[in-house]
Amino acid sequence: MKIAFTTSGNGLDAPLDSRFGRAPNFLVYDLNNETFEIVDNQQNLNAAQGAGIQSAQAVARTGASAVVTGHCGPKAFRALTAAGITIYTTEAATVAAALADYQAGALVETAAADVEGHWA
């Protein structure tokens, strides 16, 4: 099973980015063999609108079945849910900390969007 984390960096020690739609990268962690890959989320930047929805599509393409981020807006929430991806929000500072929380079962599945979109 794969989990996508939002981050501005390139490794497990990188900060967890609190934004979903505007996150620069996804760190996609594979729980089965404990490896990860970095997926660039830059394709959003020239879209006129809908960063959260595009991010959801990008996560879906990685094959991840869960995403861990700081906040999730309503549009991204609906898109991720439609794609069958579980959403966890956390205030963990780094990807590694968020991963540890996930593995310890300390993350709670998000049942609804917790922020408005940054720009519609």
Binding site: G50, K75, R78
Partner: peptide
């Protein structure tokens, strides 16, 4: 539909599309 929409107002993940009428 999802590939065409410039506004990301409609997108399908292999099932009936999700709509974002506000966009």
């Amino acid at each position: 539909c999802g590939k065409f929409c410039e506004y990301n107002a409609i997108v399908s993940f292999g099932k009936i599309p999700v709509l974002f009428p506000e966009m």
